[in-house]
């Protein structure tokens, strides 16, 4: 009897550890963000909880903000939560990477805290990387490589001899939406293998396939420590000035700081074929608690210095709209 109980106990421990491992694999992130059910426990211990969820590729940046914020506001616990519900009211703050419809937007207050750029990337061992790291991609070639288009003028298409496999997100998400919309397509038009997972999984898939081709935000392309592209992937330079050719001046993707500086300093009319979009915080206009507002306000005022370091582009001052959020915050907090 004892041995059976011991065996069961052993199995139980094993089962839990396996399930936990699976969950960690599932979240597949470098950070241990907290599942929703944990927060309710925390909430019982400490009422000053702000729950954030949303675009997962932004979590490292947001975590940095949280860490800095906590130094100033130790009583407010901001928690990044694995998104388990599509109901935004479950979270105090959403961080997302594409624009919602006006219907959704009317009840939320937005803070456009950063911009992110999306670039085409290929497995470094691929023929594509060997050829196009040098030749670069113009708009037509990007469209030809990435999108199903029955209206495309096949006559104009180039012959691509290198085998390639495009990887894209299955579920609707900010990065694929931004990438597709920039080239006047929808996410569903991206061809290739779909990934059920997050943007980080695109990176993983790319690394596993020597014919892999995809699109990623700078924050995932570059190693946060070395500031160089993640080993094994190559950025395919694009026709930045839109003149139909990729010159040597348009190949500057070896160091993250060079890239963010160039993108920030180049006027928008000369910044072609680089999908850029805003990362925004949003809170419910009516029900957001004051701690959430405080956090967002803090990010607006203090978060800009970290952007380049994490692979983001500073937002346009007008779009950041500090004053607007301040006004909203003053009404809500007071």
């Amino acid at each position: 009897m004892k041995s059976i109980f011991a065996l069961n106990l052993l199995l139980l421990v094993f089962a839990y550890s396996t399930i936990s491992a699976q969950e960690l694999t599932a979240s597949s992130s470098n950070h241990s963000y907290i599942p929703s059910s944990d927060v309710s426990v925390l909430a019982k211990k400490n009422q000053r909880i702000v729950r954030i969820t949303g675009a997962r590729f932004a979590y490292p940046l947001v975590q940095k903000w949280i860490d800095d914020f906590n130094k100033q506001y130790p009583d407010i616990q901001v928690i990044i939560e694995s998104r388990a519900s599509s109901d935004p009211t479950q979270y105090e703050v959403l961080i997302e990477a594409y624009e919602h419809t006006e219907e959704i937007k009317k009840d939320r207050e937005y803070a456009y805290v950063a911009r992110y750029a999306v670039l085409p990337v290929a497995n470094s061992n691929s023929g594509l990387a060997r050829t196009y790291a040098d030749k670069g991609l113009d708009k037509d070639l990007i469209v030809q490589l990435f999108f199903h288009d029955i209206y495309a003028d096949k006559e104009k298409q180039k012959e691509i001899k290198e085998p390639f496999t495009v990887y894209t997100r299955l579920q609707k998400a900010g990065v694929p939406v931004t990438f597709s919309n920039y080239f006047s397509y929808e996410q569903k038009d991206v061809k290739g293998k779909a990934i059920a997972g997050s943007d980080e999984h695109i990176l993983k898939a790319l690394l596993r396939d020597s014919t892999g081709l995809s699109y990623l935000p700078l924050s995932l392309i570059y190693n946060h420590e070395t500031k160089k592209p993640v080993e094994g992937i190559t950025v395919l330079p694009v026709d930045l000035n839109g003149n139909g050719k990729v010159s040597d001046e348009e190949k500057f993707y070896d160091e993250l700081p060079v890239v963010t500086k160039r993108f920030e300093e180049t006027s928008s009319k000369d910044l072609n074929n680089v999908p850029l979009a805003y990362l925004h915080f949003s809170i419910d206009k009516n029900s957001a608690n004051s701690d959430a507002i405080t956090f967002v306000k803090w990010v607006i005022n203090n978060g800009q210095k970290d952007l380049n370091d994490f692979g983001y582009i500073r937002p346009d001052a007008q779009k950041l709209a500090k004053d607007k959020f301040e006004l909203f915050a003053s009404k809500r907090i007071n």
């Binding site: 694999t25 599932a26 979240s27 597949s28 998104r83 388990a84 599509s86 199903h148 029955i150 990887y167 299955l170 579920q171 569903k188 293998k193 779909a194 990934i195 059920a196 997972g197 997050s198 999984h201 993983k204 898939a205």
Partner: peptide, 22 residues
């Protein structure tokens, strides 16, 4: 083909492209 890297929380929506459209 769909590569599943994490078990989705919500049902997957999969679209197939009609051969005739291709």
């Amino acid at each position: 083909e769909i590569e599943v890297y994490e078990l989705p929380e919500e049902p997957l929506e999969i679209s197939l492209i009609d051969d005739s459209l291709l």
